[in-house]
C-alpha cells in the first residue's frame, strides 16, 4: 500500500508540470491561430500598423546598423587571419558577403530587434492587460487581436526583411572598410570580388529568415504581453519571457530555414 501511495504521489508531482506544459502549448497554438486569422481578415488598423513600422523599422535602424557594421568588420579581420596562413586572402570579400547576408545580418539584427521591440511589445500589451485596457477595447466593440496583434504581426513580417537588406549593405561595407583601409586590399578588386560572388540565393535566404524572425518577435511579444497576469511583476515576467522565448526560437528557426535552403 505504501509503495502504491508513494507511486501515486510521484506521478501526481510529475504530472502537474506536464499538464501545465501541454496547456501552455495549446494556449500558444490557439493564440497563433487567432493571430493569423485576425491578421488576414478586416478591419485593418492602418494607423496602428504605421506606428509599428516606425517603431520597429525606423527606430531600429541605428541598432541594426551598428550591429551589422561591426559584424562585417570582425568577419573581415577573422577570415583574413585564417586565410593568410594558406595564401587565400582573396577569399575575404566572399566570406564577408556570405556570412553577412546569410547569417550575421538576419540573426544578429533579429536578436537586437527582439531585445528592443519584442520587450516593448510585451510591456505595452502587458500593461494594457493588467490595467484593463484590453477589456476596454473589447467593450468598445473592437477586437484586440485586430487592433493590437495584427498590426504588430504585419509590421514584423514586412519590416524585418527591409532592416536586414539595409543591414546586408552596412555589414558588407564594414568588411570593405577593414579590407581596404586596414588589410590593404585594392578597393576595386574588393568590390569586384564581392559582386562576382553575389548570388540571389544569399539575399533570399537572409530575407526569408528575416520575415520568419520578424513574425516570431511580434508573436512572442504579443503573446507574452496578452497573457500577462498580476501587476508590475507580471508585466516584468512577460517582458523577460518575450525576449528569451523569441531569441531561442530565432536560433532554432535559423537552423530550420538554413536546412530548407541548403540541405542536399
Amino acid at each position: 500500500m505504501l509503495i502504491l501511495r508513494k507511486t501515486e504521489k510521484f506521478l501526481r508531482r510529475q504530472g502537474k508540470p506536464l499538464v501545465n506544459f501541454v496547456f501552455k502549448v495549446g494556449e500558444l497554438f490557439i493564440f497563433i491561430t487567432q493571430s493569423i486569422y485576425n491578421s488576414l481578415t478586416p478591419p485593418f488598423y492602418g494607423r496602428n500598423f504605421l506606428r509599428q513600422v516606425i517603431d520597429m523599422g525606423f527606430y531600429s535602424l541605428p541598432v541594426v546598423g551598428l550591429t551589422t557594421i561591426f559584424a562585417g568588420m570582425v568577419i573581415a579581420l577573422q577570415s583574413y587571419s585564417g586565410f593568410a596562413s594558406v595564401g587565400a586572402e582573396s577569399m575575404v570579400a566572399s566570406v564577408v558577403l556570405i556570412s553577412v547576408t546569410r547569417e550575421l545580418a538576419p540573426v544578429l539584427s533579429a536578436l537586437m530587434v527582439a531585445g528592443r521591440i519584442g520587450a516593448a511589445m510585451a510591456a505595452e500589451i502587458g500593461t494594457m492587460r493588467v490595467t484593463e485596457q484590453i477589456d476596454a477595447l473589447t467593450t468598445l466593440s473592437t477586437n484586440p487581436f485586430k487592433y493590437l496583434v495584427a498590426p504588430r504581426i504585419w509590421a514584423g513580417l514586412l519590416v524585418m526583411p527591409l532592416l536586414v537588406l539595409i543591414g546586408d549593405v552596412i555589414g558588407i561595407f564594414g568588411g570593405y572598410v577593414v579590407g581596404v583601409y586596414k588589410l590593404g586590399f585594392n578597393p576595386a578588386n574588393y568590390i569586384n570580388a564581392t559582386l562576382d560572388e553575389l548570388e540571389a540565393l544569399d539575399i533570399t535566404t537572409g530575407v526569408v529568415k528575416a520575415a520568419v524572425f520578424g513574425f516570431i518577435i511580434s508573436l512572442m511579444g504579443c503573446y507574452n504581453g496578452y497573457k500577462s497576469k498580476g501587476g508590475a511583476q507580471g508585466v516584468g515576467e512577460a517582458t523577460t519571457n518575450a525576449v528569451v522565448s523569441s531569441s531561442i526560437l530565432i536560433l532554432i528557426f535559423n537552423y530550420i530555414v538554413t536546412e530548407l535552403f541548403f540541405s542536399r
Partner: peptide, 9 residues
C-alpha cells in the same frame, strides 16, 4: 472601469 482603463497611447 475602476481604474479608468484609458488608452495611454
Amino acid at each position: 472601469f475602476q481604474g479608468g482603463a484609458l488608452f495611454d497611447s
